[in-house]
């Protein structure tokens, strides 16, 4: 620890120590919270699929949702939620939940696609509900209309998810997640199942064709290059204000200091 005492009096020592401590804390937390699951390889046969789903469910889900999907004190009943809901919740990594925070966050999925399909098949086999969607079935690239999708998005989605799908705050710490990088089928499934705080958008209110348009608009927004330079998060004027107070005025004050400093 000799070098520490050497630099202890430097004015950068405090901030540097703080940064180092935060880094160590952050990395150790993320290592600690990552959990591993044994992979299963389900087959395609419908009944075995359901059986495998049942097994995965019993192992990974039943402790909260109950052995018969009946739900419990901390988790809702899954009777009738349908394969779409399971595919969304598990496929986006929201389920199983890592911790009991206000809402399940998107993360790397813990079950692979086959396992998710098995789980979905099992849950759907007990009570009917909306079927899972496959990306191939969504012809949003061909049949969607981005402009119409934008209108629908601003009427139905942007109040929570922000004008560019970046997400936003709800009450009591809940939030509408960012829509960037979400698979088309998951967007579709979210619209028809209404996961967590999100309401359901029924097919008669927003038709399947309109849903495809919404997806097309979201995808267009996601892939839209930065037409005017760094996007600053696409969250509106707050970051712009921050930039003008930080880089903006600081740089100009720096120049002013240079201008008025006496030349050597």
């Amino acid at each position: 620890m000799n070098f520490i005492s050497r630099y202890r009096r430097s004015k950068f020592f405090g901030p540097a120590l703080l940064a180092a401590a935060l880094f160590v804390l952050g990395t150790s937390y993320s290592v600690a919270s990552a959990t591993t699951f044994k992979a299963v390889t389900p087959s395609n046969d419908k009944t075995t699929l359901i059986a495998e789903g049942k097994e995965i469910f019993a192992r990974g889900c039943s402790s909260c949702h109950g052995l018969n999907l009946e739900g419990g004190a901390i988790a809702p009943s899954l009777i009738g939620v349908g394969a779409a809901s399971v595919d969304f919740q598990v496929g986006t990594g929201r389920m199983p939940m890592a911790d009991m925070s206000v809402q399940a966050a998107r993360k790397d999925p813990i079950y692979n696609e086959a396992e998710t399909a098995a789980l979905a098949a099992y849950v759907a086999s007990l009570a009917p509900g909306p079927a899972a969607i496959r990306n191939e079935d969504l012809a949003w690239e061909r049949s969607g209309d981005a402009a119409e999708g934008g209108q629908l998005f601003r009427s139905n989605c942007s109040m929570c998810h922000n004008f560019a799908g970046q997400g936003g705050a709800l009450s009591q710490g809940k939030y509408a997640p960012s829509l960037m990088g979400v698979e088309a089928k998951h967007i579709y499934e979210a619209l028809i199942t209404g996961p967590q705080s999100m309401p359901v958008f029924s097919d008669k209110i927003i038709t399947p064709a309109e849903k495809l348009s919404i997806i097309k608009w979201i995808k267009a927004a996601e892939s839209e290059p930065n037409l005017g330079g760094a996007s600053l998060g696409r969250t509106g004027p707050v970051t712009e204000g921050l930039l003008s107070w930080s880089l903006g005025i600081m740089a100009l004050i720096g120049v002013a200091v240079w201008i008025t400093a006496k030349a050597k």
Partner: peptide, 17 residues
């Protein structure tokens, strides 16, 4: 942002600083 209509809104509706 899209064009204005009174029935639409976006999360994070803020004015300039």
């Amino acid at each position: 942002f899209g064009p204005y209509t009174p029935a639409q809104i976006t999360a994070g509706s803020q004015p300039d600083w």
